[in-house]
Design a binder for these strands. Structure first.
Lengths: 207, 207
DNA sequence: GTCGGTTTTGACCATAGCGTCAAATCAAGC
DNA sequence: GCTTGATTTGACGCTATGGTCAAAACCGAC
């Protein structure tokens, strides 16, 4: 049987619906991120998020069960990007320094460019225990991956002998704090910040 | 005229009143910090803060005009400690590395030991513009001080040639993120963390 | 143009949490 | 033990915000 255009996934009705729904959800994530970045946690109301998109508050509940759910979606979306960066690098044969640099750069850009990275500034307590558990599991996976690269660098003699756990906390803390001061309209582009930070943090480990 | 015990400041009625009031205010700061640390921003309600001290919510308003005011007090108290550390080190003739290490150590301990350092995790948008302005001025003073030490280290050839601004952001971000994961009942004491972090971060700059 | 499902609306409810206040309690000095 | 000012109470009002829902509008397929 021959596949016609109509049957290829990209033009299937169901497919288009789903894609459009996903796109809308992402728009909402971005709106949330912007609200957070521009006005702070204080203005993180469903109303504010909706307003920015020219939609009504009620409509948000067509896409997300409730506020927790929206927050959770943001957390997941952001973490998925960072985990993908980690995964990509796993297959690489580059030295630890290069690999770490790549992961950090992409982690930073996930946080800055996809605005919803600002969600890191909220607290996990607003999630349900189940959601928190799952998110924390992902986050731990990411942190372990980073520590693993650090450990490898130390074993190969390319990194100083630091405590991988603490070094990891320091490095990721430095990055996670970025949304607190980053201004997309400032002098430094997110790309510049990402490069500079990755460079500084990796060099901090080297020798 | 001879000063009697009754006239020495420490036993003056007004003095005692004031001291007791200040002590109470600090207790409240600590309670706020604990609520933040243990339950997250979500549980940062006046009620929760009062409960933890066995006092009523209404009573809090005898000590603080409103919630903003309380938050503001926390921010100031915490920043004052860090600024004092910076001031003390200014008079020192030690090399930049040592001085930076001292400032960072005390900054970390201000955040971890005086629990209310967790207030860093809230957002400045909950303050009035005037309060925010004043706090940000203090924070900037602190950040400039840190950058100044970094610059000096570079000039003396003791630190690598980094961008002092970005390095400062990275270093302080790593530290400010600590309340997010620090657990006073965990394996690592705050003193150990402070030393390890200061060491790691200063060495990151050296050579 | 009409039918079915999808999306959006806007009015509405419920409640958590801030902040108020008059009255009660406490404690130091005499 | 009385007086006076400092401190504390607890019940209350009010608003902001999360969340619901029935009805309307939309939109693509036929």
């Amino acid at each position: 049987m021959v596949k016609t255009d109509m049957e290829t996934p990209a033009t299937t009705l169901a497919w288009r619906r789903r894609a459009s729904r996903d796109a809308r959800r992402t728009e909402i994530f971005r709106s949330l991120g912007l609200a957070l970045r521009e006005r702070g946690l204080a203005s993180l109301t469903m109303q504010a998020i909706a307003d920015r998109l020219g939609m009504t508050k009620g409509n948000l509940y067509y896409y997300f069960k409730n506020k927790q759910d929206l927050l959770y979606g943001c957390h997941l979306a952001c973490m998925r990007l960072s985990l993908r960066a980690l995964g990509d690098v796993r297959r690489s044969t580059e030295p630890p320094g290069t690999r770490l640099s790549q992961v950090l750069t992409r982690h930073i850009r996930a946080i800055t460019d996809e605005v919803y990275g600002a969600v890191l500034l909220t607290d996990l307590e607003s999630l349900t225990p189940a959601q928190r558990k799952r998110y924390v599991a992902m986050r731990d996976r990411f942190e372990r991956g980073v520590r693993q690269i650090i450990r490898e660098g130390i074993e190969r003699g390319e990194f100083r002998k630091v405590d991988p756990r603490l070094a990891g906390f320091a490095i990721l803390g430095a990055i996670n704090w970025i949304p607190k001061w980053y201004n997309p309209k400032g002098e430094l582009s997110s790309a510049e910040i990402a490069d500079a930070f990755a460079d500084f943090l990796v060099t901090a480990l080297e020798v």
